[in-house]
Design a binder for these strands. Structure first.
Lengths: 93, 93
DNA sequence: ATATAATGTCATCGTTCGCTGACATTGGGA
DNA sequence: TCCCAATGTCAGCGAACGATGACATTATAT
């Protein structure tokens, strides 16, 4: 399933939360945000923090992935991506 | 490749921007944000707006997808969820 | 039908955002 | 080597966030 908008992601978070048998209060406690925030993200509010959104997705076992560019394009190989990410993490610290 | 944090996504955005031969100013104009915002997202700032982040990814042709849970399996196991959440809490503090 | 749980909605407040513009530093082409 | 492009960094400001708590509405269990 393709994620294009905050509404797409919010609907997925709600679906997965219900599939896991959790209510909004329980998920909020597990993620470490307010229940109001869970309401907001499930409703697809566009101005929420990307860090909290990714954390919520991770907490629900939602694996966001990016497809590799199709063969023939000149984009970077996976190993280069990994080193870029490693470098970014080092800069963060 | 798996996107877990704003830094993961920021590094990917920068890599794809360069692969497309764009500079920060050009991408900013294409997305409709400031160049400062592009600097921020590439550096993995966690508190940026999810709506702008997704719009930037879309503008670069980055397709974010979510794998469906395999048929017959129950979703993520509770113990795995708990450890992920515990890790998230430790990072937040 | 009733009671409780879950969700939706709203307001307040301290904090941070995104834009803008300027300036410093680094990268890259000639 | 030089010059310009690209990127990094910084500050001020109006607007919105996330937490909190309360209340209304809907869903669900009995």
């Amino acid at each position: 399933m393709r994620i294009r908008t905050p509404i797409d992601l919010g609907a997925l978070i709600r679906e997965r939360r219900k599939a896991l048998g959790l209510d909004q209060k329980t998920l909020a406690e597990k993620v470490g945000v307010s229940r109001q925030w869970i309401v907001d993200v499930e409703q697809g509010k566009p101005r929420l923090e990307i860090g909290l959104v990714l954390r919520t997705a991770n907490a629900l076992g939602i694996a966001l992935t990016v497809d590799k560019p199709t063969e023939g394009t000149s984009l970077a190989q996976p190993v280069i991506l990994d080193s870029i990410i490693d470098a970014a993490r080092k800069r963060r610290k």
